[in-house]
Design a protein around this nucleic acid. Sequence first.
RNA 1: GCGGUCGUGGUGAAGUGGUUAACACAUCGGAUUGUGGUUCCGACAUGCGUGGGUUCGAUCCCCACCGGUCGCCCCA
Length: 421
Amino acid sequence: MIRLPRGTQDILPGDSEKWQYVEQVFVDLCRRYNYQEIRTPIFEHTELFERGVGDTTDIVQKEMYTFTDRGDRSLTLRPEGTASVVRAFVQNKLFGSNQQPQKLFYNGPMFRYERPQQGRMRQFVQLGIEALGSKDPAIDAEVISLAINFYQSLGLKSLRLVINTLGDKESREQHRQALVNHFHPYREELCQDCQLRLDKNPMRVLDCKKDKEHPAMQTAPKILDYLTPEAKDYFEKVTAYLDAVGVEYVIDSNLVRGLDYYNHTAFEIMSAASGFGSITTLSGGGRYNGLVEDLGGPETAGIGFALSVERLLMALEAEDVELPLEQSLDAYVVAIGEKAEAKAFEITQTLRTNGLKADKDYLKKKIKAQFKAADRNQAAYVIVIGENELTNGQVSIKTMTTGEQENIAFDQIVSYIKQKG
RNA sequence: GCGGUCGUGGUGAAGUGGUUAACACAUCGGAUUGUGGUUCCGACAUGCGUGGGUUCGAUCCCCACCGGUCGCCCCA
């Protein structure tokens, strides 16, 4: 038997309805905030991610699904959405659109070559948004509130929004230098990864879990102390906007984010629900002023976030949230005897074209088994048609909840069901 | 990339070095003629992840591999 590749999953009936529901809620919400959908390819030139995501990141260094095609091009299955969206923004000159800022959302599979575990798949689905072309702190708050709003509207309660600023270029440069100076004497005591990070991206040392307890970590210079007045002001405005709309948050100066392109606002939303395993991050995002330029476009500010549907579903489960999924059937048509088959088929079809959810048997089952099927499908009504009915021009309609049964003329079936509800 | 743990029918699972691999659920059939959710009866793994090895003999012992799962790192 050929099995699915490691780290992938089949989403089967029973679950797929949850996915559809969640995705639909997301689309509706994005529309309310006036975001429009963008669809980009599932694979891109490898270079896009090396430059866009950053080659010091774990994603680029060890998690990319890279392959060579028949034309000897190096392509990569996208590990995240932002780089592609920005690429499309530049390539299609959306910066010239009369709709500014460009507010976009996307929904699709992402790929990272990792060891699968709970909440971490090699193929996983992200829903995300990007707002390009505005450096108004209010739009940072808009993006964050949309994310929170989404989770809340699905019924999640145990949420924790963590926010930080990574400052502007100048702030980061000074902070970076301070970090290098600070950690330099302890270099040998840090883990191997951190020794590398110290050279390439010192900020990520703060994010390390291995060296978390190291004394130098507690006393490390905080970005908040190195912010330029402008960066500081920006961050204060973002939080003020969040306060204004009642979004609760926690400031964590060690929140760094794993992607190179972030600056200014960075945030993560975590689930505080118990029984959620070791994975708690539901979504993350931040501002990436400068990325558009890096990818060949004009100077353009940007901010966005992405969330994982897999983790969202896990969180919903952990909090025992029941999604309002509609699965029952309005009617199931039972045919008795071969002569009634054609009419049963016809009636089923008529119900459907009149907007009712209907089905019938296709396995030549006995009456009893057909009723069982009707029951399993949670049919509200069972329409029985046999030889008697055929000659009378009527069917017998049974209301499953009460067991009552009535004879109804063929052309009255739809109105009968609609009227009774 | 590293570590723990597991791998028996559609599902959940018991089990033993030796003629017929429990049990439950699901499914299907039946309990007199055209009616479900209850009950009763019956059917349902030539097979115990794959490949080697040990043995007179292995699903059960050993090895390797593959896969699931959880954790570390990092992230969504």
